[in-house]
Nucleic acid binder design. Structure first.
Lengths: 190, 190
DNA sequence: TAGGAGTTTCAGAAATTTTTGAAACTTCAG
DNA sequence: CTGAAGTTTCAAAAATTTCTGAAACTCCTA
């Protein structure tokens, strides 16, 4: 591996974390390298920089493309593929969230739905189904929230993030204002 | 494996998903089994139910305890350990989020901070650092949001989830009201 | 359409992770 | 103190994942 020390530290870290993130070391390293490279890189430059086999680079790039984490560029009069990551980190975040949901959540949601359709055969199965229903309910709430929020433009999303828990206070304020507008409703109403 | 079919489907699914979630198959299966069991189970019951070795169960339970995903129970006059999962799915969600943050985010955040302290040696390093700063900024925003929101009581959190993107609209409404209030300070409220 | 530069595929090698059984350890009743 | 019941540890076997080099393929140029 032949990289500026600062970049190397970053690349190695992404390699190590790879396994915890459900991608493999090489994929992590390649992603990190592309992320911090000022120019798009072609496969051979990656081979050179990371000191891994050509075929490994090829497969890993394919994997990254599958995740939509990598963008293909072409230079004029050069038929090699060059790769970068998208510039906008918010866009990267969205992609990552979408892909992880697809791989890590959706299959479970659909298995749960399937199992919940079945008739329980005995008391234990009935209990198990009850638990699965709770899990299903929670996951559905979370994914509904996500599906809603992901449509926001970036600056709105940023606003929502900075607000954080203050949102609930805001909500109370609004309720108060609205209720004043409605002319003194009796307290203790829903 | 000797389980009611409905439970077995659930357990097998968690086993398969395990690798995508960064835990291993056995750990996933044991967790799933405990999650849907009406009573706490001891190690041997798990061996029996899943058909895996005693030692594997022992190590996997230890792992689950490390994640705080499992609760230890004792029956009177029985020195075996019995295990369950917490009842409240929201609590499970919190634990999961906390642990994943600790393992998947925090190390990266601290590596980024460290690298960002260093002096770039050349133009490429400067660029790389710039990119890392963007990543760092985004992750910090997200974790600040998380740290804030995780303190909410469950029903508030649920409210916040149902609101979703409507929050930003709410915010506009409030701004409008406030600005009207400022332009016509007649009604003199804060 | 032959040659060659570049890319992808794939079977097996290498590395890593998971699982096991046997041995060591712990705890407590007798 | 002894032994039995239960639990944990650990080295090695089994399974899985990752990586490689060689061969196959693609596409362009001449």
């Amino acid at each position: 591996m032949n990289l500026p020390p600062l970049v190397q530290a970053f690349v190695l870290h992404f390699g190590e974390m790879g396994s915890r993130w459900g991608i493999n070391r090489t994929v992590g390293q390649i992603y990190a390298l592309l992320y911090v490279s000022p120019e798009p890189l072609c496969a051979d430059q990656i081979v050179e920089a990371l000191g891994i086999s050509r075929s490994n680079v090829s497969m890993s790039l394919r994997e990254l493309q599958g995740w939509d984490l990598v963008v293909l560029k072409h230079l004029p009069d050069d038929r090699r593929d060059f790769f970068t990551t998208p510039d906008d980190v918010w866009q990267i975040l969205r992609t990552l969230a979408e892909e992880r949901k697809k791989r890590e959540i959706d299959p479970t949601l659909s298995v749960l739905r399937e199992i919940l359709m079945q008739q329980p055969g005995n008391e234990n199965e009935r209990f198990a189904q009850q638990r699965m229903a709770e899990m299903h309910g929670l996951i559905e709430r979370l994914t509904n929230w996500y599906d809603d929020v992901k449509r926001l433009e970036t600056d709105r999303l940023a606003t929502l993030l900075s607000l954080g828990s203050k949102v609930t206070k805001l909500l109370e304020t609004k309720d108060k204002i609205v209720s004043i507008g409605r002319k003194k409703p009796r307290s203790g109403e829903t």
